[in-house]
Amino acid sequence: MARRVMSEKYNDSCLRIFALIKMFVESDAPFAEVIKLFADENGNLTQKCNVTLNKYMNTLDLCGIKVKKRKNKYYLQKMPYSIHLNEHELYAVSLMKSAMSFLPKGKVKTSLVTFIQDLELRYDRNTKNLNKVVASTRNFNLSFYFMQFEKQITQCENYCQEKNKLDLSYVGEEAKVVNIVCVPEEIIYTDDIVCLRVYESLTRQNIDIPIDKITNINVLEAKDNSAEKVCTSVIFTLKGNLAKSYKLRDWETLESKNSDGSITVCNRGEDFQALSIRLFKYQDNCVVEAPKYLKNNIKKLINNTLKNYS
């Protein structure tokens, strides 16, 4: 039956079948809710409602939209809209599933599980068939890298979410135990090392601590309440060809281009130790200008290395 509203005509059946699909898409729909769609104008449920619902369910089935009923609930098994993925894209999905095990339990992980389910629900027939082949031939496993730290990673991820300040001890340079009060930021994955990045407000720096070097963590009651963290800036000068070819990182800014061809760079937020190692590699083409204590650290690093040859 077509109705006229203003100048626009539309179909009741069309509206109703899409309302039915929407119910199935949004969640697993209980029969008691679904049948209400077919109530008469006064909201009464009659025997006719069941007949009409069956007709609509048959319609969906003939259109390839698969819905299963279990324990008085309807479960959508195939969407009205399908997506085609090729072998490479399915591989990326399997990679996503494997890497998911490194996400902490919580909203983010749960939402990703839902996302993958939503995606798989939309696979067209070819994608579904291909997926069986990909799943059996390209078994992707990331556990090789980080599984040994899985518990620690999960724990640290939780700290990062909760944002409580931590009283943390770790084994630092020259095997000395370092104790700091810090705010957990995020988990950093570099090569086969997993680090907990923390912000230490005392020295105003981000520190990347390898997870296996952490010896003790006490969660403090105080929450991180700083609206904005200000990291100490590191200023360094680059010379020669390096000055010409250097590509600024996202967390770096160009302070000045100097008359001798050198450039001065300001770095904020990079772990000091990682930064020192990186700048050390640039040899005499790089000089740290500030802060003074980092400059002194680099000097010490050079002198200690030279001692090996005296």
Partner: peptide, 30 residues
């Protein structure tokens, strides 16, 4: 249309987090 795949802010965070995990562990081709 209303049946398009939608991605929430939490799902974006998860997708990017995975990118960061694999960035330093897997081959460029992956």
């Amino acid at each position: 249309h209303p049946f398009e795949l939608s991605i929430s802010q939490e799902q974006i965070r998860a997708i990017i987090k995975i990118y960061r995990i694999i960035l330093n562990t897997l081959d460029v081709s992956d």
